[in-house]
Simulated assay, not measured.
Amino acid sequence: MKTVATLALLAILAACGSSSEDEPAKPKLSAEKAAEQTCTEVNAGIEEFNQGDYAGTVTHFEKAKITAKVYAMVSDEPEADALLDAVQYYANLDPADYPEAARSSENFARNKAITLNQCADADDGTDGQKV
C-alpha cells in the first residue's frame, strides 16, 4: 500500500511541471482542492474507525497523505502542516493499536481534534463531532 501511495504522490508531483525552466514547479492542485481531497479521505477514514474497521481507517489515511503533502506544500497556513502531521500519525498507526490509542493516547486526542476541526462535514449536521 505504501508503494501505491508513493507512486501516486510521484504522479501528482510529476504533473506539476512548469511552463519555463526559470519558473519553479507548482502543483496543479490548489490549496483549497488539496485540502478538500484530503478531508474526503480523512472523513472516510473516520467513518471506518467508527465502524471498527481499523485497517480500513489506515487505508484512507494512507490515501489522505498524498494530498495532505500537496496541501502543506502549496499552503502558507500552519493548519496545512498540522493536518499533514495528523494524517501521517493515523496512517502510520498500526490497526491493532487503534482501540488503545483512542482510549489513552494524547497524540491520538490531539490529532483527532485537528482532523475533526479541519475536516468537519457541514452536510452531516455533526460539525465534525464524530465519535
Rank of each mutant, 00 (worst) to 15 (best):
M1T: 13
K2F: 15
T3L: 14
T3R: 14
V4S: 13
T6K: 10
L7Q: 12
L7S: 07
L7K: 09
I12S: 07
L13Y: 04
A14N: 08
A15K: 07
S18Q: 02
S19P: 03
D22F: 12
E23A: 04
P24W: 02
P24V: 02
P27T: 09
K28L: 03
A31I: 02
A31D: 02
A31M: 00
E32W: 10
K33C: 09
T38R: 07
C39P: 07
T40Q: 14
E41C: 11
A44L: 13
A44Q: 15
G45V: 10
G45S: 12
G45H: 05
I46W: 09
E47Q: 15
E47Y: 13
E48Y: 11
Q51K: 15
Q51H: 13
D53R: 03
D53M: 03
A55W: 10
T57F: 01
T59G: 08
H60R: 10
E62S: 04
K65A: 03
K65S: 06
A68M: 00
A68C: 07
K69M: 08
M73A: 13
V74E: 02
D76H: 10
E77T: 06
E77D: 14
E79Q: 13
E79R: 13
D81T: 14
A82L: 02
L83D: 00
L84Q: 06
D85C: 06
A86R: 00
A86I: 01
V87M: 00
V87H: 01
Q88L: 04
Y90H: 03
N92D: 15
N92C: 10
L93Y: 01
A96Q: 11
E100L: 00
A101Y: 01
A102L: 01
A102V: 05
A102S: 12
R103G: 04
S105K: 01
E106T: 08
A109L: 08
R110A: 07
I114W: 00
T115S: 00
Q118Y: 10
C119V: 10
A120F: 06
A122L: 15
A122P: 10
G128E: 08
Q129A: 14
V131E: 15
